[in-house]
Design a protein around this nucleic acid. Structure first.
Lengths: 126, 126
DNA sequence: CCCTTACCCGTACGACTCTGCGGGTACCGC
DNA sequence: GCGGTACCCGCAGAGTCGTACGGGTAAGGG
């Protein structure tokens, strides 16, 4: 057989400890569904753009990201469905902004992370 | 044609503002590659488990997650390749732990996020 | 010394994801 | 009102990801 379930834990104490306070599959799935939404270059950049200027319409958003409208439209659809962005329709233009209940720490963290990455990719000569 | 690039930005000022300080595709890809690694229930739970008890071998890890060894093995392979976890071999048992340079804020954020999710999924009746 | 255990790897396949395309609706300008 | 604009949707195809499976290696126990 391929992968056997070993019945004799090497360190049963630690296993029990971890198992007890580990998030269940459901909770983990909820967390990862949010993470998955940010784990895409287009969507991430959409969120960054909306974080800087409060509001942008779809066309301008595509312009700012230098992406085509299809990609941006798809990204917005998923973000909207998940409730991460809200939209306001004025005439034939639809403006998007970050939803009120947007996970603050996630946004903050990503911005900081980005700064770190930027610094790494541009090592200062001294 | 399907999606036209509208050449007349509705709000050119905001577009320019966003475009200027927006992360490039490369930087965004770097960030999202890390995010993608956490955006999977198995991998996320592996990291949580390793965060609680410093060290666990593969079999015990599968036991703690109540997952089969294939899934855990694959998760560890990706995390190891990305340098997020380190391993130590003792006899025929391989112990894994979080890598030294593991992104602190990400871990911290995810833990907090999980708490929020847990509270939401159990709405208190009043 | 052989058999089992603990783990790793490559492959194949199903499932999901993203993109591009065609077409549709609502709205504004002429 | 007619044409064009701004956006949305559904669908088909390509690509990617995770899982299951078979097999392989190194170490330890009887």
């Amino acid at each position: 057989m391929s992968e056997a379930e070993h019945a004799h834990p090497v360190d049963p104490e630690r296993v029990a400890h971890a198992r007890a306070r580990l998030p269940g599959r459901e909770e983990a799935a909820q967390l990862t569904s949010v993470l998955s939404l940010m784990a895409d270059p287009t969507r991430a950049r959409v969120l960054f753009a909306l974080d800087m200027v409060e509001e942008l319409c779809v066309g301008d958003l595509a312009l700012a990201l230098e992406a085509n409208e299809d990609a941006v439209g798809y990204a917005l659809r998923l973000l909207r469905t998940a409730g991460l962005v809200a939209n306001r329709k004025q005439g034939r233009v639809v403006y998007y902004r970050l939803a009120d209940g947007f996970p603050e720490p996630l946004r903050e963290h990503c911005l900081r992370q980005l700064i770190v990455l930027t610094e790494r990719s541009v090592p200062e000569e001294e």
